[in-house]
Amino acid sequence: MHSFYTVLKDAIGGDDQKVLALIVHVEGSAYLKEGSCMLFAPDGKRTGMISAGCLEEDLAYNAEDLLASGCSKRTLVYSLESEDDSGWGRGSGCSGTLFIFLQVIDRMLQSELKTLYRSLCSGHSICWTIHFTPHFDYVGHNFQETEKQGSNHVGIKDWTTDTEHLLIYQQLLTPQRRMILFGGGKDAEPLCRLASECGFSVIVCDNKEDRLQSVHFPNADQLFLGSPESWMKRIHLKEDDLVVIMTHQFQTDKEIIDQLKILGLHLKYIGILGSRKRTEKLLQKHHFENVHSPIGLKIGAKGPEQIAVSIMAEIISILHS
């Protein structure tokens, strides 16, 4: 999903037409599955990932041809069966067939994607549906808000009536999970970057204006300056949020803990930087579920970058356990 959000943010930015490539169907094995997408811009910039590198150049050629020809949509079929360098598989070990739908992002589609992005940021789930003929010719698409959270099925389904037979691609798009990073020190920078690259929406909070700058946190979605009480009023914490406390200020950390206790949420993850003894003193009589301190997996991490890896490894392990 994180690749989709990265692609979506680039797709709605700027005025130049770009081409969206989306895997809509896979037969057999492939490096990436249905829902994987990639964006091709006229200046050569590419966002996202479709394969292990064996298809990108041909996709870029077809994207360029779409923009030049005035044709807005095309479905390409790639067989990865060949194990030598003469085939699309290029010895990658994949043996499947990929159906990749290319679509020019014109002004109308860009407007739809902006609405989609706003809906996702507001916490709504969206079902993305694309209709194809049995030969994978494009028929139409729509984005529909849905309350369904459980099923993450992505791919093609048959739909047959007395008058027509269509292939229906469906993908459930859910809001990004948020990481709330309390602390804007230099050691928070690699964590913010890595969390964003792993697909999380990152909010950084700090009380020092000189540190809370986009130049230090270019990957952050939001920066909140102020006190713990003001942060909580603006963030609107949810139970599936991930909280990381690393302000390096005991009193500030304690105020954050007090605010969390007032909210009374069963947060998915609370990671606290510092020793176990410091954290026990910090929590005092407060009891929280899912507190992790010292923060991060015990992998012998040293330095901000490695500690960021250990924290993300712990979070990913918890989310998938």
Score class of each variant (00 low, 15 high):
111 S>Q: 11
111 S>K: 11
112 E>R: 07
112 E>G: 05
112 E>A: 13
113 L>Y: 08
113 L>V: 05
114 K>Y: 00
117 Y>S: 15
118 R>C: 03
119 S>Y: 03
120 L>R: 09
121 C>F: 07
122 S>E: 07
123 G>Y: 03
125 S>F: 03
125 S>H: 13
127 C>T: 06
128 W>Y: 15
128 W>G: 07
128 W>L: 14
129 T>C: 09
129 T>R: 13
129 T>S: 06
130 I>S: 09
130 I>Q: 06
130 I>M: 15
131 H>P: 02
131 H>Q: 15
132 F>E: 08
133 T>K: 05
138 Y>S: 12
138 Y>C: 14
140 G>H: 11
140 G>R: 10
141 H>K: 05
143 F>Q: 12
146 T>L: 02
146 T>S: 12
148 K>I: 03
148 K>T: 10
149 Q>R: 12
149 Q>V: 02
150 G>P: 00
151 S>A: 10
151 S>T: 12
152 N>S: 09
152 N>E: 15
152 N>K: 15
153 H>A: 12
153 H>N: 10
154 V>A: 01
155 G>Q: 07
157 K>V: 14
157 K>L: 15
157 K>S: 08
160 T>G: 09
160 T>A: 04
162 D>H: 05
164 E>Y: 09
164 E>Q: 14
164 E>I: 09
164 E>R: 02
165 H>D: 02
172 L>N: 11
173 L>I: 14
175 P>Q: 06
176 Q>Y: 11
177 R>H: 09
177 R>P: 06
179 M>R: 09
179 M>Q: 03
180 I>F: 02
181 L>R: 01
183 G>E: 05
184 G>H: 01
184 G>L: 10
184 G>E: 08
185 G>R: 01
187 D>E: 14
190 P>V: 06
190 P>G: 04
192 C>W: 06
192 C>R: 02
192 C>K: 05
193 R>G: 01
193 R>Q: 12
194 L>E: 04
194 L>W: 02
194 L>F: 13
195 A>I: 03
196 S>T: 13
198 C>R: 08
199 G>Q: 08
199 G>I: 08
200 F>Q: 11
200 F>W: 12
202 V>I: 11
203 I>T: 15
203 I>R: 00
204 V>Y: 01
204 V>M: 04
204 V>T: 08
205 C>M: 04
206 D>F: 11
206 D>R: 04
207 N>A: 14
207 N>S: 14
207 N>P: 00
207 N>I: 00
207 N>L: 03
208 K>A: 10
208 K>L: 13
209 E>W: 01
209 E>T: 13
209 E>D: 10
211 R>T: 03
211 R>C: 10
211 R>Y: 05
213 Q>L: 12
214 S>F: 01
216 H>R: 15
216 H>N: 10
217 F>G: 12
217 F>M: 08
217 F>R: 04
218 P>D: 02
218 P>H: 01
220 A>H: 08
222 Q>M: 13
222 Q>V: 06
225 L>C: 10
225 L>R: 05
227 S>F: 07
228 P>S: 05
228 P>W: 01
230 S>R: 06
230 S>H: 10
231 W>A: 09
232 M>I: 10
234 R>Q: 14
235 I>L: 09
237 L>Y: 15
237 L>P: 14
239 E>Q: 14
240 D>M: 00
240 D>I: 02
241 D>I: 03
242 L>Y: 12
242 L>V: 06
243 V>R: 04
243 V>L: 07
245 I>C: 08
246 M>F: 03
246 M>V: 01
